[in-house]
């Protein structure tokens, strides 16, 4: 260890606690996350460590505590170790992912049924919800898909990070997270209302309504451009719903 590192840690005596990685005991500082503790113990992540920021879902982990039958879950990069945890990392859990041409779908529930018929083997055991590290009500969105409510499925599954722990625990052997993703895709692409004003705006652009303005901006010197930007009319913080700028030529 370098002298620098010693200086940094001086006076902050890390307390070591025992953890078990795949059955073998290691003593690790108690402030580490599971991911860092496993690395501290000498393991190296080739895959399955992901973003290390609690977002991507690659490091979803299961662990147990001594004398407790329950399975605990969390993201290894976010969960801090506890004494005598039983740990391992599951790099990937195989799950059936249907192949589909998204452009040919239309957003009917039957399209999900045909791609994932195993959905109907759900027994509502709720193991998926219990295991979800993101606290998504997985059973609820699967129930919603079963009754054809794609919007509810999309909304309930919104926080899913596709870690796949639900599929690892499923009695019906289904890939909940892929089904939820398909529901969100269908909902977003086909079932949410279309933004009609966007079409008008695109048509306006194509008709050249903003061409003069844009070429005017492009022709400006850097200083004029800066000044124009700084002098622009801004919506006041107290501006209400019906506020409009004085210059309305592009509205």
């Amino acid at each position: 260890m370098s002298t620098d590192a010693q200086e940094v840690t001086a006076g902050v005596e890390a307390k070591l606690i025992p953890i078990y990685v795949m059955g073998k005991r290691y003593d690790v500082p108690d402030s580490l996350t599971i991911m860092k503790a496993i690395e501290y113990a000498g393991y190296k992540y080739i895959r399955g460590c992901g973003c290390r920021g609690g977002v991507c879902g690659a490091c979803a982990t299961v662990f147990r505590k001594p004398g407790d039958y329950k399975i605990y879950t969390g993201l290894a990069c976010q969960t801090v170790v506890e004494p005598e945890m039983y740990l391992t990392q599951i790099p990937f859990y195989p799950a059936n992912r249907a192949v589909y041409d998204f452009g040919s779908l239309t957003g009917r529930p039957e399209e999900i049924f045909a791609l994932y018929p195993e959905l109907f083997r759900c027994v509502a055991c709720n193991a998926c919800t219990k295991v979800c590290p993101m606290d998504v009500e997985v059973l609820d969105y699967i129930s919603a898909v079963k009754r054809g409510d794609i919007e509810a499925a999309a909304r309930i599954s919104f926080d899913c990070i596709q870690c796949g722990l639900c599929a690892s625990r499923c009695f019906a052997e289904m890939p909940q997270y892929h089904i939820g993703q398909l529901a969100r895709r269908l909902w977003g692409a086909y079932l949410t209302p279309k933004a009609e004003h966007l079409k008008t705006m695109v048509a306006n652009i194509q008709a050249g309504r903003f061409s003069d303005g844009l070429s005017g901006l492009k022709a400006m010197s850097q200083d004029t451009l800066k000044k124009t930007y700084q002098d622009r009319e801004m919506e006041p913080a107290t501006g209400g719903e019906d506020w409009t700028p004085k210059d309305r030529q592009y509205l």
């Binding site: 759900c122 027994v123 079963k146 009754r147």
Partner: peptide, 25 residues
């Protein structure tokens, strides 16, 4: 609120309780 599929058929095996969970929920 939050209902799930009941399973449509009642399980007929004496030791099969997992299929009772859906309707009981």
């Amino acid at each position: 609120d939050r209902w799930n599929c009941c399973g449509a058929v009642f399980s007929l095996a004496d030791d099969d309780l997992i299929h009772m969970v859906a309707p009981v929920r």
